[in-house]
């Protein structure tokens, strides 16, 4: 499965547009991590635990999007976009969307 965030694929031609595919996930950090992050706030710097958490969550959202694309019979997802939002204190939503298409060598 080809996943890119441009509108067209060089050297390939879109033969069918299957429509929007999307995936989301909401992750909460656990209390321990929250505490460590609180400590980190004193000295500053990267919050590695949160970076990992969000990376993993974004991957999950993308995987759900890819599953949808697969169900539609697509071989590529174009123009992929991500949005992130804090749903409540300590929980974030990661959302990925794109257009599922069928491409062939041109």
């Amino acid at each position: 499965m080809l996943v890119i965030n441009t509108e067209s694929v060089p050297g390939k031609e879109i033969v069918k547009i299957l429509g929007l595919v999307q995936g989301n996930t909401i992750r909460a950090k656990h209390a321990g991590r929250d505490f460590m992050a609180g400590l980190k706030n004193i000295v500053g710097g990267e919050l590695t635990a949160y970076t990992e958490l969000l990376t993993e969550a974004r991957r999950e959202a993308m995987q759900r999007m890819l599953n949808q694309a697969e169900e539609l019979g697509a071989n590529a997802v174009l123009n992929v976009r991500f949005t992130t939002s804090a749903i409540t204190a300590g929980a974030a939503e990661l959302y990925a969307y794109g257009t599922a298409v069928v491409v062939v060598e041109s």
Binding site: N24, H30, A31, A91
Partner: peptide
Amino acid sequence: LGGLKKLVGGQVGTYERIMN
């Protein structure tokens, strides 16, 4: 439920349903 989940972290299914 979401508050309980926040103690251990991880995916919060109930909130996912709301957002969907």
